[in-house]
Design a protein around this nucleic acid. Structure first.
Lengths: 185, 185
DNA sequence: ACATTTGTGGAGTGATTAGTCAATCATAAA
DNA sequence: TTTATGATTGACTAATCACTCCACAAATGT
């Protein structure tokens, strides 16, 4: 009964299928089962909806990847948990994952609110700690972060394009972390 | 004096800056210094222009990465040449690179003409040969290809985001290839 | 010299779109 | 019961957009 959620869901579905360009707000409202005006009651402009959807997805992803992290975990264990949680999330939320990509390579990136940038700071700090402990040999931390993120992205895309069995997926996910870890240490 | 080229250049600039949605064909014509009708003389629809621009860029990239490859090169040498050429191209053609990303994560991907798909076959075959020779330990070839591509993408993005000196860039590029190579062998 | 094709311009058009607005409805506090 | 508040509606509009049309110019062939 939450119309705002309905609108976000409809927007996600249509934007990923037809692009920002190809989906009029009227279609989003229709898909969500609300009136045209209701959409603009919750989101002042179409742009605001586009950005709000990104923020919403990013928050859910952020929550999911950080929920299992424990303070006493080693650097490697922390890294593995982040990595594997993100990969699982990407597989279980293929559309959301595609939306993130689509958004990040669109001009809307520049509209990301400052509050959201802080989130990835935890991971950068973890990498910096790894470098300080001479565990991670590749520097600087931002470079490592960039490599890991894109690797994650590549593996995710591969898993989603091939429709592997759950067993194969699990195996690939674990192996792929070891691959990256070997590369940076 | 080649108006078709002018239109493609203008489209590249505006699409990457304002997105497909945010750039009307009229603005593209204006930026290119041609009349509205001229644009539609060369490209039947806006969609055709969007795809044609992708094909044009991809062809230029394809030419650039394969021009130095020699038949007698070893697998590793071939791989290095591909990798480094692509990276250099990405740095020298930042806008084109961004357009490729933008295009690939948009619904227009499905409009890529069949002729273009063949191009990446050469690289897949090289990887398959590497696997056959037991040089490359990670399988299947498509997975390796996915990993390398996304790594390339990540490094490129990092280099373009930080504005490194040319010396640092060269160093990073060479190191990054060894990093990937170590990972898959 | 003429005919034919090809390129170019830019005003014009019908359709579409983001966003508005005045009016209703639901709920609950006073 | 009254009043107030916010959610919800959908017809409406001003603007924009992709694309057409046709006149004319330049190049090309005969």
């Amino acid at each position: 009964m939450d119309k705002q959620k309905d609108i976000l869901n409809a927007a996600l579905k249509l934007f990923t299928e037809f692009g920002f360009h190809g989906t009029p707000t009227s279609k989003i409202a229709q898909e969500a089962g609300v009136a045209n005006g209701t959409l603009f009651h919750y989101f002042k402009t179409k742009d605001e909806l586009i950005v709000a959807l990104y923020v919403d997805i990013k928050k859910r992803l952020g929550f999911c990847v950080s929920k299992d992290i424990q303070a006493e975990d080693s650097i490697k264990e922390t890294a593995r948990k982040y990595y594997i949680a993100a990969l699982h999330w990407g597989i279980d939320n293929e559309t959301e994952f595609r939306y993130i990509q689509q958004f990040l390579s669109s001009p809307y990136v520049s509209m990301i609110p400052a509050e959201l940038v802080e989130q990835s700071l935890a991971m950068i700090n973890m990498i910096k700690e790894g470098i300080k402990q001479k565990l991670i040999k590749v520097t600087p931390a931002e470079y490592v972060m960039s490599i890991i993120s894109s690797h994650l992205y590549g593996v995710n895309q591969y898993i989603n394009s091939q429709k592997l069995s759950t067993t194969k997926q699990k195996q690939l996910i674990n192996e792929s972390f070891e691959l990256v870890w070997k590369m940076i240490t």
